[in-house]
Simulated assay, not measured.
Amino acid sequence: MSNTYTYGIHQQLQPQELLFLVFVDTAASHFGIDDVTAIGAVIAGYPMLPTRGKFAGATKGTSIASVVSRKVLPFELKHRILPTVTWKSMLQLKVLLVKNIGTFVGRTIPVVGVVMLAYDAYKISTESVRAYNELVQEEDKVF
């Protein structure tokens, strides 16, 4: 016979149902202004705006972050030393070097957003497992 649990208004929950509800509860309490910022950074870095010609193999379109940062930071270095990634180069696991500070900032914004969202996913997962393990009997714990 399997153990059953009560969580809030929910009764007779199987261990996997309880884990799901704890996960949903933890995620709901975790999301706040930081997550809106992360999602905004990812969206701002998505290449949704049309562009004129690009070289073969380049990511099609440009992002809002790129357009704004190139206008606000139109500074060039002498050499290509600033590491960046685009959506396409990320999938190919390639780092691109640029010398324009605006380009560097524009391409870095979505990376920061992705890192923030990855951290949120890690935090929610670990908090959910900890909370779940505190509620269940030894044989139903997740390690």
Rank of each mutant, 00 (worst) to 15 (best):
A41E: 03
K141I: 04
V115A: 14
A56S: 11
E17Q: 14
F20H: 05
V114W: 11
H30C: 02
Y132C: 01
V22E: 01
T4L: 15
T26M: 04
T84R: 01
Q14S: 09
V68S: 12
G106M: 05
T108A: 11
I64A: 03
V129G: 00
A41P: 04
Y46F: 14
E127P: 00
K141F: 04
R70Q: 14
S29L: 10
K99M: 05
I33C: 00
H10I: 00
V36P: 05
E76L: 14
G57F: 11
V112E: 06
I101A: 01
V115M: 13
H10R: 11
L135M: 15
Q14M: 05
K71P: 07
P15E: 06
Y7I: 02
T62F: 00
A131M: 00
F31Y: 09
G45K: 01
N100P: 03
N3W: 15
T126H: 08
Q16W: 04
V68I: 15
E127R: 12
A56H: 00
A41Q: 07
G113R: 06
S2Y: 12
R52C: 12
S125M: 10
F23S: 11
A118C: 10
Y46N: 03
V24M: 07
M48S: 10
T4H: 12
A118K: 05
V111A: 10
K60A: 05
N3Y: 15
K88W: 06
K141G: 02
P47H: 03
L73P: 05
S89Q: 01
L96P: 05
D25K: 13
V95M: 10
Q16A: 06
T37W: 13
Q12S: 15
G8F: 04
A118H: 02
F55E: 13
E76P: 02
M116Q: 12
H10F: 11
L117N: 11
V112G: 07
F20V: 12
E134I: 03
T59Q: 09
A121E: 04
P50D: 10
Q12K: 15
A27S: 09
T6F: 00
H30Q: 08
V85K: 06
V36Y: 08
D120K: 14
T6Q: 12
N133M: 08
V105I: 15
L135Y: 09
T59N: 03
I9G: 01
G102Q: 04
L82T: 08
I81W: 02
D120Q: 13
A28Q: 07
E139Y: 01
I109A: 04
V67W: 06
I64E: 02
R107C: 07
A58G: 02
T51H: 02
V114Y: 08
F143A: 15
S63W: 03
G8C: 04
A28I: 01
V68M: 14
N3K: 13
P110H: 09
L82F: 11
K141A: 05
N3Q: 13
V68Y: 09
L91S: 14
W87N: 13
Q12W: 09
L77H: 01
E138A: 12
G113A: 10
V105F: 15
T4V: 15
S63E: 03
G45C: 06
V111Y: 08
T4G: 08
D34W: 09
V24G: 01
S66Y: 02
D35Y: 13
Y122H: 11
L49A: 07
